[in-house]
Nucleic acid binder design. Structure first.
Length: 273
DNA sequence: CGCCAGGGGAGCT
DNA sequence: AGCTCCCCTGGC
C-alpha cells in the first residue's frame, strides 16, 4: 500500500469519463479497476491517492496505465484564452487522464459501445468476462474475471454473445476475434504503427468504423491526435465550433481536448453549453 | 405503461 | 452521400 501526491488526477472523473468500463467507484472515496489480469483498489482524498499495491507494481504497471508520467497542465496551458467553452470544459475535467489500456480489450469494448449507453456497455463487458474470462482472486479472496482472450471468443457461434446482451454486436466481436486468431490482424504490428496506419488497419475489422477506430487509437495506443466524433461531440462541435474544431492549434493532442469536451457535455453544468 | 435515445456501422441505393 | 436496419436496456 503506497501513498502518492498527484496533480490533475481524479479517479472519479476517469471512472465517469467512459474510456474504461472496468473501473468502479466502490464508495465515496474508494475505487477499483481491473486491467489485464491485475486488480487494484485505490482511495483518493484531494491530491492524495493511496494505491493498494507495492511500489514495484505501481512503478512497473499502474504509473504507466494511468499516464502519470505525463503533465496534463502543459496541454491545458495551450488552450486558446478566448475559447471560454474549452477553458470551462478543461477546468471541469482537469483530473482526466488518457489511460493506456489493452488493445484487444479496447477493440471489443468499443465494438460493444456503438448505439449503446455506458451503463449497458459496462454490463455487457461484465457478462462476457464472467462467461469467457479466466477467474481470478484478489488479495481479499474475492473473485473477479480477466477479460476473455481472442482465442476464447473465436470459436463461438456468431450469435453466442447475444446471451451476454450484446445484441447485434455479437457477430462483430466474434468475427473480430476470429480475424485476430487467424493472424489476419496482428495486434503487435498495430501497436507499432503510427496513428493513421493503425486506424486504417483497425477499420478493416468487421464492425469497426471511424469513430470506434479512433477510440481504440486513443485509449489503447495512446495516439493523442485521435479525435473520436460521436453524437455528443458532434453536437458540441455544431454549437461551439461551427467552422470546425481548431485541430491545427492542438495538433498532436486533440484527443485530450476531446475528452474534456466529452466529459463536460455529459456531466458539466447546463448553463453555458 | 409507452416512448426514445444511446460514445455506429454495414449494406443497400 | 443518404437511407434503413441491426438489438434492447435505461431513463424519463
Amino acid at each position: 500500500m503506497i501513498k502518492k501526491t498527484i496533480h490533475n488526477f481524479s479517479l472519479l472523473q476517469i471512472c465517469q469519463s467512459g474510456q474504461c468500463f472496468r473501473m468502479f467507484q466502490e464508495s465515496d472515496n474508494t475505487y477499483s479497476v481491473i486491467a489485464n489480469t491485475k486488480y487494484l483498489e485505490m482511495e483518493q482524498h484531494g491530491n492524495s491517492v493511496i494505491f493498494h499495491c507495492d511500489e514495484e507494481e505501481f512503478a512497473g504497471f499502474w504509473m504507466k496505465y494511468f499516464d502519470l508520467e505525463n503533465d496534463y497542465s502543459v496541454y491545458m496551458e495551450q488552450i486558446n484564452p478566448r475559447d471560454s467553452y474549452l477553458l470551462h470544459a478543461a477546468a471541469f475535467g482537469a483530473g482526466i487522464r488518457i489511460l493506456r489500456q489493452d488493445l484487444w480489450e479496447m477493440i471489443v469494448s468499443f465494438l460493444i459501445s456503438q448505439q449503446n449507453n455506458i451503463t449497458r456497455i459496462r454490463r455487457c463487458i461484465q457478462n462476457i468476462c464472467e462467461c469467457y474470462g479466466e477467474q481470478q482472486m484478489n488479495a481479499h479472496g474475492k473473485t473477479y474475471y480477466a477479460f476473455p482472450t481472442p482465442q476464447s471468443l473465436a470459436g463461438l457461434e456468431e450469435d453466442a454473445l447475444k446471451e451476454c446482451n450484446l445484441g447485434y454486436r455479437s457477430k462483430y466481436v466474434v468475427r473480430t476475434a476470429k480475424s485476430i486468431v487467424s493472424g489476419e490482424l496482428d495486434l503487435d504490428e498495430v501497436r507499432r504503427m503510427p496513428y493513421k496506419k493503425a486506424k486504417e488497419e483497425l477499420m478493416k475489422l468487421f464492425g469497426v468504423g471511424e469513430k470506434v477506430a479512433d477510440c481504440i487509437c486513443l485509449f489503447a495506443l495512446h495516439h493523442l491526435q485521435a479525435f473520436p466524433i460521436d453524437t455528443h461531440i458532434s453536437q458540441a462541435l455544431e454549437k461551439h465550433y461551427k467552422r470546425g474544431f481548431p485541430n491545427r492549434r492542438y495538433n498532436g493532442y486533440q484527443g485530450v481536448m476531446q475528452q474534456y469536451i466529452f466529459y463536460y457535455e455529459l456531466f458539466g453544468e447546463r448553463f453555458d453549453k
